[in-house]
């Protein structure tokens, strides 16, 4: 990935974590700003206008979710939140508040870079033209002609299955919460019917996954949501 000297703001109270991230990100060609508290983070965002924010939700002095909301009030820069395993509700809240993705501590550099790559790509896509074609290995989505093919063979999807797949496809690699999918596909009124998503997702997997119980494309993030795995996405198991 070409970092192009992009500026990353790391909001993290642990000195050791900041040291590791600084060394690793600078080695990848990123510029690096750091903040240890919510207050420092707000100052850093206004003065440096970073290209991406890496935000630890477990800050001692405040609420990372509130900070996410505040950043979103006037910046579209991708926000990646970092949290511990078992805090799924925090993750969902952060994502619904406008964060782009999350990482579970501890994470490896490959995983972080993969998430950053996806986030930058979406950021760029939002500003520019949307690509009408999505390719993930054998899976091919043509969003303009509403066609889905698997290894060159057309797959017949119901309208709802297509909407879900197209939504995930347009957000390739990005995690979408159950809420976000429900709202986009069914509308606000169905925001609590999360089993709708799950049932249709199961049907969708039967059509496009070779082994639906070991999906290659449609990955579940338990308790949070789904993502369409990118070709070079390191995934959660990485």
């Amino acid at each position: 990935m070409s970092a192009d000297g992009k500026l990353v703001l790391v909001v993290e109270d642990e000195v050791a974590m900041r040291r590791f991230l600084r060394a690793s990100l600078q080695a990848q060609g990123f510029r690096f700003v750091e903040a240890a508290t919510v207050r420092e983070a707000l100052v850093a965002i206004t003065t440096h206008n970073p290209d991406l924010v890496l935000l630890d939700l477990g800050l001692p002095d405040g609420d990372g979710i509130a900070l996410t909301r505040k950043i979103r009030e006037w910046s579209r820069a991708p926000i990646l939140v970092v949290s511990a395993r078992g805090r799924e509700s925090d993750k969902v809240e952060a994502l619904d508040a406008g964060a782009d993705d999350y990482l579970t501590k501890p994470f490896g550099m490959n995983e972080l870079l993969a998430r950053m790559r996806v986030a930058f790509r979406h950021h760029d896509a939002e500003l520019g033209e949307r690509a009408p074609l999505v390719d993930v290995g054998e899976l091919h989505l043509d969003l303009e002609r509403r066609r889905v093919t698997l290894a060159g063979v057309e797959v017949h999807l119901t309208p709802i299955e297509y909407r879900i797949l197209a939504l995930l496809g347009r957000n390739l690699g990005k995690l979408l919460t159950h809420q976000q999918i429900l709202t986009e596909v069914w509308g606000q009124a169905y925001a609590t019917h999360t089993h709708y998503v799950r049932v249709h997702m199961a049907e969708l997997r039967k059509k496009i996954e070779r082994e639906p119980a070991r999906p290659r494309f449609l990955v579940t993030e338990p308790g949070v949501g789904y993502r369409l795995r990118d070709r070079d996405d390191a995934g959660r198991g990485g």
Binding site: S89, T194, H195, R198, V199, M201, A202, R205, P212, A213, R214, P215, V219, T220, E221, P222, G223, G235, R236, G237, G238
Partner: peptide, 19 residues
Amino acid sequence: RAQWLPLEEVVGSALLRLE
């Protein structure tokens, strides 16, 4: 935090985590 889930989905994410 119980919800209606297809077992397949849980199996899938468990296997992914253990990849």
